[in-house]
Design a protein around this nucleic acid. Structure first.
Lengths: 102, 102
DNA sequence: CGCTGGTATCAGCCGAGGGTGATGTGACAA
DNA sequence: TTGTCACATCACCCTCGGCTGATACCAGCG
């Protein structure tokens, strides 16, 4: 039952700041300091969001001395793409099919 | 600038009940009464969620006498699929690219 | 017309979660 | 070791949004 966890991923991506972080990480791997200057958010706030992204499986951490690099996981994005494609296909084939009013 | 509205769509899909509604509507067009018996939610609650889904452009209404049928818009799902695919591709090509620590 | 059933709207409650300051931890440099 | 920097954790406030009961609206039917 893969679909049960999807609303959580969407809820995670539904925050504007987190979505911005994801788009930034899609272009290059960054550490918290870079994200602070890119987004303008506080370090504490970013740390909280990174924890959420990490627990959602969207991001991997890569310690580098005192720094912590965050790397996006393309597989998850590709999986979501496939889920949406399948759902769109289901909706297309079911076009016009409606249940009778009781 | 398409990407600016995306977090809103994700926030809409991030609610478990709304996601269930979307998956149900992907299979067949339904009216509120059907959704009430499928989800077990109250009519008022469902009406609120349908308004959110409609305003997000995910769903179209189709009045049929006293009933209101809701139809999923596959184009939106397909668009999201494409966005995720592009983002995954960007992340893949940028793999290993990391900004230097300041 | 009045009644009934399907939906939408309104006002309000309340818990989840985003934002913040203070503080803890761990790694490098002098 | 001591100081500093990067990051995580904690406690707290406060807003947003999901859920609800009451109620208004609208289409069909007698």
């Amino acid at each position: 039952m893969l679909t049960s966890v999807e609303p959580d991923v969407f809820r995670v991506l539904g925050d504007p700041l987190r979505w911005k972080i994801v788009t930034l990480l899609a272009r290059e791997t960054l550490c918290t300091t870079h994200l602070v200057e890119e987004t303008g958010a506080r370090q504490t706030n970013l740390s909280n969001h990174m924890k959420v992204l990490r627990e959602a499986g969207l991001v991997e951490t890569e310690p580098c001395g005192r720094f912590t690099y965050y790397r996006l996981r393309p597989e998850v994005l590709a999986g979501l793409s496939g889920q949406f494609a399948a759902l769109a296909e289901t909706a297309r084939t079911a076009a016009g099919k409606k249940r009778a009013c009781p």
